[in-house]
């Protein structure tokens, strides 16, 4: 097995020594060449030897840089660079985990206290005053935003890390949709919105993909739908022989054509007026599409806007079923 690092070092040392020997020969040639050797074409042979040594030595040094690439080996600098980037990525992930945990701690405490207070107030039988109820509801409402934002940032760190490989595993898309609906059903119900989902065929079976990544994409789509729908959201799971599809439909007001071209842009948020308090980071759809493409799929959108009575928005995620060969 060739060790490109070792090859590189030795080629430079030997090449350098040969160049040095050539230079010494060229320097000595006028002094001793003529007296020791007979001239050839009026130049002493030591000059020839010196020139050849310099050329061979320089060639060895140049080859030490170019050779490994020609032989299909990585140049040591590239290896160092990629190793460094990988290490950087791991360190970033570790910092992010700590950061996420530490940011989550105060929210867990607030959320725990809020749930405790709500339980005490409910068991007391006293009607909860509107401002207090609104405060308790707001804490619950902001928690899913926090969860999704943190996990968006975490996925973004992973997406931008170098050399991250795509890992496929067997997964049941219907179970994955169930998990997302578990998460958003109570949130939607709070504001009298309904979520319905089904799969065709009803026994959907297994696909080969990255479950966590798909769950992340669909969570972002359902999160958006929960915010903008008027009354209900429908999630439909279908497939053909090569791909499977998840369609997230909502009966919200729709997205105007001049906005729709920007919705997958990084940092774009759907709050249309500057005075609105922003409720999203604008990362969700950008990450969702990036993840879909990373796994060989696509995320598209179609929307019909008000005043059309059929106004709605539908996102379609298509991904290869990825049956291993």
């Amino acid at each position: 097995m060739w060790n490109s690092d070792l090859l590189h070092s030795w080629a430079r040392i030997i090449g350098g020594a040969v160049v040095l020997a050539g230079v010494i020969s060229l320097v000595l040639a006028p002094l001793i060449g003529g007296s020791v050797f007979s001239s050839l074409w009026e130049i002493e042979p030591l000059s020839y030897i010196g020139a050849v040594l310099v050329i061979v030595g320089l060639a060895a040094i140049v080859l030490s840089y170019v050779g490994p690439r020609l032989l299909g080996l990585k140049a040591p600098e590239a290896e160092e660079e990629s190793g460094g980037m990988e290490q950087w990525s791991q360190v970033t992930q570790q910092y992010f985990d700590l950061f996420h945990h530490d940011l989550g701690r105060p929210l867990r405490r607030i959320l725990g206290r809020e749930r405790e207070s709500r339980a005490i107030l409910q068991s007391s039988g006293v009607a909860i005053e509107t401002p207090i109820k609104e405060l308790l509801d707001e804490i619950e409402k902001q928690t899913p935003n926090f969860r999704l934002m943190m996990s968006n940032i975490q996925v973004l760190v992973q997406l931008e890390a170098p050399n991250t490989s795509v890992k496929l595993q067997a997964l049941e898309p219907s179970e994955m949709v169930r998990r997302i609906v578990d998460r958003y059903f109570p949130i939607a119900a709070e504001s009298q919105k309904e979520i319905t989902w089904w799969s065709e065929p009803s026994e959907f079976g297994i696909v080969y993909s990255d479950g966590s990544a798909i769950e992340h994409i669909v969570a972002n789509l359902v999160d958006n739908a929960t915010r903008f729908t008027n009354t209900h959201i429908e999630i439909k799971l279908t497939k053909n022989p090569t791909h499977f599809f998840i369609r997230v439909w909502d009966d919200g007001p729709g997205i105007a054509p001049h906005y729709i071209q920007h919705i997958f842009d990084r940092g774009w948020t759907p709050e249309f007026t500057r005075g609105d308090e922003k409720s999203s980071s604008g990362l969700g759809l950008f990450i969702a599409r990036s993840l879909a493409r990373r796994y060989g799929g696509e995320l598209t959108v179609e929307s019909v806007t008000e005043p059309d009575p059929n106004h709605h928005t539908a996102f379609l995620l298509s991904l290869p079923s990825g049956e291993p060969e």
Binding site: H100, R108, M150, V155, Q158, Q169, S212
Partner: peptide
């Protein structure tokens, strides 16, 4: 979990 596990770690544990 006390934070989002992140796809890689959860996949590793499941694996």
């Amino acid at each position: 979990t006390q934070y989002a596990q992140g796809p890689d770690r959860e996949t590793a544990v499941r694996g």
